[in-house]
């Protein structure tokens, strides 16, 4: 995968709001991305990806004609047709089932971000770079909602506060290294926490970061 600095990441944008598209395009251009094209609906977004083969497609989940889940369908189709194009789905609402559907189709190189998040440019740029390099990104608010959900007493209650923090970062799609940096911990310590968490929740250890995200999200949702 192409890292930042080597050559600019090529991005296409799909959203039916011109204001939003142009604002985001300006912001990305300012940050050194190459905006290869813009689309106002899912069908033209797919055509655009076919033509431009961008590194990342940023898609709004709701687009014409029905304003339902056209973006989600397009994202799944893009991952299916162009494995080299990562997808970042933007949603105006926290809807975990959409996030899980996206991950389930292909957990690598996909992200689900709350639309408001784009205004925290660091988060947005980080998310684009992470999906571009084959990672998974789940909005902290989605994770927060899942973790904060009222549920009867169960295995989650046995996690220490630190383990809960680690679990949340796993669910957001962070790598062990990123978790260690975020929590200012030794990598070994983080790995220990992760083993403890998986053991307490009765989950099989997952070899890759993105498979791990899906497992954790599915677990949180089912509880």
């Amino acid at each position: 995968m192409t890292g930042p600095g080597a050559r600019p990441l090529r991005v296409i944008l799909a959203d039916d709001s011109v204001l939003f598209r142009s604002g985001l395009a300006h912001l990305l251009a300012d940050e050194g991305f190459e905006v290869a094209g813009e689309a106002a609906d899912a069908a033209s977004a797919l055509e655009l990806v076919d033509r431009e083969r961008p590194d990342v497609a940023v898609l709004d989940i709701r687009m014409p004609p029905d304003h339902r889940t056209e973006g989600l369908e397009a994202a799944i189709a893009i991952r299916d047709r162009h494995p080299t194009t990562a997808v970042l789905l933007l949603s105006a609402h926290v809807e975990t089932r959409h996030a899980i559907r996206l991950l389930r189709a292909d957990a690598a190189g996909v992200g689900y971000l709350l639309k408001d998040r784009v205004m925290r440019e660091a988060d947005l740029l980080d998310a684009i770079r992470r999906v571009a390099s084959g990672g998974s990104v789940i909005d902290p608010e989605v994770v927060g909602e899942l973790l904060g959900r009222a549920r009867p007493h169960g295995p989650l209650d046995e996690l220490t506060p630190r383990e809960r923090d680690v679990l949340a970062l796993i669910a957001e799609g962070r790598s062990n290294q990123a978790i260690a940096e975020r929590l200012v911990l030794e990598l070994k310590t983080v790995e220990g926490h992760i083993r403890a968490i998986f053991s307490k929740l009765g989950l099989e250890p997952e070899p890759s970061d993105h498979r791990r995200v899906l497992a954790v999200l599915t677990y949180l949702r089912s509880q």
């Binding site: 709001s17 204001l19 939003f20 142009s22 604002g23 985001l24 300006h26 912001l27 300012d30 639309k115 408001d116 784009v118 205004m119 440019e121």
Partner: peptide
């Protein structure tokens, strides 16, 4: 959408 666009402008 307008408010989000406004956010971009503020960022810039």
């Amino acid at each position: 959408q307008r408010l989000v666009a406004l956010g971009f402008t503020l960022r810039r």
